[in-house]
Simulated assay, not measured.
Amino acid sequence: MAGTLLAPPSGVPLEKLVQVAMERGYTAQGEMFSVADMGKLAQEALGCQVEHLCGGLGGPNRARVLQHLVSGHPLLIPYDEDFNHEPCQRKGHKAHWAVSAGVLLGVQAVPSPGYAEDPELPGLFHPAPSTLHQPPSLPEDGSPGAVYLLSKQGKSWHYQLWDYDQVRDSNLQLTDFSPSRATDGRAYVVPAGGVQAGLCGQALLLTPQDFSR
């Protein structure tokens, strides 16, 4: 999904990604419990630039993540997936990956010029394509319900809007390997230090190879 956003409209076939990951020893069943390995896979298979974010999605990383999404680039996030694909907190037992392709910001006033109101949803404004526009001011940290990530998990048919704080909290509590996976008789690639070392509080910022920061 991230590949399609980086190099539309083709992307990279899932089969190729899995093949490269298996050849490099990153995965055995398609699982990916290492953000570092996922970053190396993205660089090699998607030909993109990768920034490995550590320390969670809060604090100083929050502005970095939001500016990245406002610029139109995808974010890869490990999190615990609830039954409806939204973030939950299961200590890593339901760890999955999601891609965020955009952000919805609740702001006091719409910056102008360069923004157009949605014809179907009053009060919703989009950056006008091919028009110079001032980046919106980011809502203050701690303002509940003001930031939503436009995100999608691989098994979901649709993008969803996830509250930023819920995503942050889910990403920050990935500590344990699923007991059901540990006893299913299959082999999995888990990094030294386990799920906590491989996933907890980490994410990937992806940008096209020719993009200059």
Rank of each mutant, 00 (worst) to 15 (best):
C54K: 14
G59R: 07
I77T: 10
A98D: 12
C88F: 00
G56E: 03
A63S: 14
H68P: 14
V107A: 00
H93I: 00
P60R: 07
A109K: 13
S100M: 11
D82W: 08
L53G: 08
G56V: 02
G92M: 12
V103H: 10
Q67I: 00
G92T: 05
Q108F: 01
E51Q: 15
P74M: 02
E51C: 05
P60V: 08
G106V: 02
V110M: 05
R64W: 05
L53W: 11
V110F: 05
Q67D: 08
G92K: 11
C48N: 06
A101Y: 08
L57K: 09
Q49M: 07
A101R: 15
V65A: 07
V70Y: 14
P87H: 04
L104I: 01
S71Q: 15
L53D: 11
A63M: 07
S71D: 15
K94W: 07
P78M: 00
L75H: 11
V107S: 01
H68K: 09
A109P: 02
L53S: 12
A95I: 08
Q89C: 10
W97A: 10
F83D: 14
D82T: 04
D80S: 07
E51F: 14
A95N: 12
H85W: 15
P78Y: 01
C54F: 02
G59T: 09
S71G: 14
D82L: 05
G92L: 10
G92D: 10
G72N: 05
S100H: 05
H52T: 14
H73L: 02
G56A: 02
H73P: 09
F83A: 09
R90A: 11
R90W: 02
L69W: 10
W97H: 10
V50K: 12
C88Y: 00
H73M: 04
C88P: 06
V99P: 13
R62D: 03
C54D: 05
A95W: 10
A98L: 15
H52K: 14
C54Y: 04
V99F: 14
V50Q: 12
V65D: 08
W97E: 12
A109G: 03
A63K: 13
